[in-house]
Design a protein around this nucleic acid. Structure first.
Lengths: 337, 337
DNA sequence: CCTGTTCTAT
DNA sequence: ATAGAACAGG
């Protein structure tokens, strides 16, 4: 059986607001590690991957793996019946054909009990390669959302160009053209923009791109001084980012944040310059996850699907989208061979 | 002639927002006691009864009884021309074929004068029995609204079950089932839940139900200790509640409110357990009156129309709705025989 | 955290 | 025109 307790209904609500327009049905894969959902979007262009880790539930118990086929529209409706600060308990017996949800007000004077019918969903479990990306941009999620909204007013697609100076989003359309250039924050220029950060994530055997890395280094020797330290930096940063979901006190997620302020800034970890074009329709949809996390990271390599990732306290939400010249399925399967 | 002065246009606006969707036309029955409106809803399923008492107007004068047939949609339009704190004066000569409305800004630097055409409406004046109910639930009007909205997302109808532990609203539908249990507030458990409260409202000659009352008493002797006191309690409480409309300072309407806080809590006065099913479409409509009053009271007896009542400073707004097994008209006429 | 307001989408 | 969602303020 499954019994998972979530402190704040708000998290689940935001999650569903974030993905319900992209995916209408999906399996909640419940294991002892947590709850995951992975699904192609309705038009099979984008991939959504959600992970809620068991440790971050208030309590979590899952005796055996079970995929719970849920209609996300229905689940959204039911979650609307919870107040933001209600404690949510998800319950499903082993042979469940329905998912139980209990919403308890903090004062415990109000209990909502709901039961949602489940459905059988044939799950093509998609292998997502743990790719290394040529460029990783970390920025304010709300700024990302704003840019997508703004540019969507102009055109259908956006070109994202990442260089070490910054990242440029540009779009063209009937009424005109537009572009937004975000400069890398000063502080991040030190910690980011160079090659060492990524080496943390990179598999040691992927050496083919190291030449590029060196090239990049040569171009900016002045920012490579504290390389050894940065490896630690990066690990540290990602930890903090994770615990940073919507918690206000943990504002200085990056210790190397430019100003001592709570501003997020833009950090670019660049292996090599990339320039990719994506459908704004999808990006704006991804950007709806902004309420979940202060930061978003965009992971890009040329001719490879974009990864848009939101790390929040309870887990991670990832969106994959093929560039307009689509290698998406090739990309997805390449890793499994 | 009629000349009635209302301190705050906001009250009238909220009133019309509350009922205009249910009733499009109706007679404003003006007497020296105040202004009343009573009408079946458009589909003749629910009954709306509004009373504005003369004493609660800033000034009130009505020389002779006159029914003013108004189209509530038109009245709503005209009231939109008033600011919330404008002083409203309703004027109608004895032979009126139109109703005059004057909106004066508090600073008296702005005067709006409007005239609305009246219509002749054949008024079947419906006798509403002053029934005693088996269960009376008092709760936050906004919570009531919330619950109706939530459950309306699941199903067409709601079952309301009142017991001394609390009240349960439940609904079933395609996507699943849901229920909300509100526990009676601790403090209210003392004042409520027993039989004596209703004796305040009951006509002395209605003795047919007293047997039931005694039976109920025998079943729960432990809560009958402070009976004599409670009669006073109830009178006191209803007075306070009435003066409580939307006035923020008068928060502790119930002196026996559980916490000393400004929370409303749930109070249940139970003669015997009831379980009734109602159309959520109508309840959500009734719940639109929430802005008028912090509290709403639900009065129920088995197989008898529900009374949903909002008491506000200037008067009372009542809604009657037959349970899904409809004895409504039988109920309405039974008292007139 | 709730209320009131505004905007948008239907 | 209305109702829901997002936002700001208290």
């Amino acid at each position: 059986m499954l019994e998972a307790r979530v402190k704040q209904a708000a998290v689940l609500k935001k999650l569903l607001d974030a993905i319900k327009e992209l995916v209408t049905d999906g399996n909640l894969d419940c294991t002892d590690e947590g709850i995951a959902l992975q699904a192609m979007d309705n038009s099979h262009v984008a991939l959504v991957s959600l992970k809620l880790v068991a440790e971050q539930f208030e309590s979590y118990r899952c005796d055996r793996n079970m995929p719970l086929g849920v209609n996300l529209t229905s689940l959204t409706k039911i979650l609307k019946c919870a107040k933001d600060q209600d404690v949510v308990t998800l319950k499903a017996p082993d042979d469940a054909d329905s998912l139980g949800l209990v919403f308890e007000s903090p004062k415990e004077d109000r209990v909502g009990e709901y039961e949602m019918k489940l459905m059988d969903i044939d799950q093509e479990h998609l292998g997502i390669p743990d790719t290394q990306y040529d460029a990783t941009i970390t920025m304010s999620s709300s700024e990302f959302q704003r840019i997508c909204r703004d540019l969507a007013a102009l055109g259908e697609s956006v070109k994202i160009e990442a260089s070490k100076e910054g990242v440029r989003f540009s779009s063209e359309g009937e009424v005109g053209n537009g572009s937004v250039l975000l400069k890398q924050s000063a502080g991040n220029d030190r910690g980011g923009s160079s090659s060492k950060n990524k080496s943390v994530k990179r598999d040691p055997d992927e050496d083919n791109e190291n030449d590029d890395e060196d090239e990049e280094r040569d171009e900016k020797p002045e920012i490579d001084d504290d390389e050894g330290e940065d490896e630690l930096d990066d690990e540290d940063r990602s930890k903090k980012r994770k615990s940073n979901g919507k918690a206000k006190p943990a504002k200085k997620a990056k210790k190397d944040d430019s100003a001592g302020t709570d501003e997020i800034g833009v950090s670019i970890i660049l292996e090599k310059q990339v320039s990719l074009t994506f459908s704004l329709k999808y990006l704006t949809n991804f950007a709806k996850s902004a309420p979940l996390a202060r930061e978003v990271s965009l992971h890009m390599s040329n001719d490879v699907p974009l990864l848009v990732q939101f790390d929040f306290e309870q887990g991670t939400l990832q969106f994959f989208l093929a560039p307009k010249v689509s290698f998406f399925f090739a990309f997805l399967t390449v890793k499994n061979k």
